[in-house]
C-alpha cells in the first residue's frame, strides 16, 4: 500500500548548505504524523522541500500517487497539499477577508473560491463575523484558527504544520490540537512539527525523529509513551552514530 506522502532518498538545502541527506519519510492517509528533532536538524527544510519552497537536490517526493518533486509551490497547493509555515501564520495588516483571498490566491475560479469561503465560515463562524477586521487585531487563538481556515480554503487532503505553537500561550496549543483532531476526524491527514513533544504525543499516530538531516526514527508513536522514553531513544541514537 502506498503512502499519501512519500519522500525517498531526498537531499535538499540552501545554496552551499546541504541540510537533508537521503531522507526517507512517509505520511499515511488519514493519520497524524508528528515530526520532532533538535533545532537545526532539518525538520522545517523537509516540509519546505515537500511543498517546493526549497529545491530538492536529489531524490523524490510523491503525493497521492503523483510525482511532485521540485514542483513549484503554486502548483503543489492545487494538488491537495497545504502548508502553514512557522511564524505568525496570518497576514496581520490585512483584513480577515483579505487573508482568505490570499489563501485562495491559486484558485482562479472566483465562484469556487467563494464557495470555499462559505465552507470556512460554516466551520469557523467568527471568521465570517470579523471579515472586515484587521487580522492582527484578532486574539491569538482566533489568529491560529484563521490560519486553519486559510489552509481549508485550499481543500487539502493533507495539511503540513510547522510548529503551530510557536510564540503562543501554552493553553492555545490545546485549542489548536483540538482543531487538528476535529479536522482529522473529517478525513484530513496531518504532518506536524512541534517542540512541545508531550502535547504532540497525545495526538499523533506516527512519529518521525529527525536528527542531523536524516530520519532517525519513523514509526508508530504508540511505543513512545513519555519524554523519558524519547530521551532514551535520543541517547540511543546519539550513542549509535
Amino acid at each position: 500500500m502506498s503512502s499519501l506522502l512519500e519522500v525517498s532518498d531526498l537531499d535538499a538545502g540552501y545554496a552551499g548548505w546541504q541540510v537533508l541527506q537521503g531522507v526517507e519519510f512517509r505520511a499515511e492517509q488519514n493519520r497524524i504524523t508528528g515530526i520532532i528533532g533538535p533545532n537545526g536538524s532539518g525538520k522545517s527544510t523537509l516540509l519546505k522541500a515537500v511543498v517546493g519552497m526549497v529545491a530538492p537536490q536529489r531524490g523524490s517526493v510523491h503525493f497521492n500517487g503523483q510525482d511532485i518533486t521540485g514542483m513549484p509551490t503554486f502548483d503543489v497547493v492545487t494538488h491537495g497539499l497545504a502548508y502553514i509555515p512557522q511564524g505568525k501564520q496570518i497576514f496581520p495588516e490585512m483584513t480577515v477577508y483579505e487573508n482568505l483571498q490570499m489563501a485562495a490566491y491559486t484558485i482562479r475560479d472566483r465562484q469556487l473560491a467563494g464557495q470555499r469561503f462559505e465552507e470556512v465560515y460554516d466551520h469557523f463562524p467568527f471568521i465570517a463575523k470579523n471579515r472586515r477586521q484587521r487580522a492582527g487585531t484578532l486574539s491569538g487563538g482566533e489568529q491560529s484558527l484563521l490560519s486553519f481556515g486559510m489552509a481549508l480554503v485550499l481543500e487539502p487532503k493533507c495539511l503540513l504544520l510547522d510548529e503551530p505553537s510557536l510564540g503562543l500561550a501554552p493553553q492555545l496549543l490545546h485549542q489548536i490540537f483540538e482543531t487538528v483532531i476535529e479536522l482529522h476526524e473529517r478525513g484530513l491527514t496531518f504532518v506536524i512539527i512541534e517542540q512541545n513533544v508531550r502535547a504532540l504525543l497525545d495526538i499523533v499516530d506516527d512519529l518521525a525523529i529527525v536528527d542531523s538531516g536524516r530520519i532517525a526514527y519513523l514509526g508508530p508513536a504508540k511505543g513512545v509513551h513519555d519524554e523519558d522514553e524519547l530521551m532514551r531513544m535520543y541517547v540511543g541514537l546519539g550513542a549509535s552514530s
Binding site: M53, P72, T73, F74, D75, V77, A82, M94, M102, Y105
Partner: peptide, 20 residues
C-alpha cells in the same frame, strides 16, 4: 496588489499559498 502586500508582511506565508 494584495499579493504584494502579503509578501511585504510575510514572505514565506505568501509563498506557502502559492504567491510567486
Amino acid at each position: 496588489g494584495k499579493a504584494i502586500r502579503a509578501v511585504s508582511q510575510d514572505e514565506s506565508l505568501a509563498a506557502a499559498f502559492g504567491v510567486r
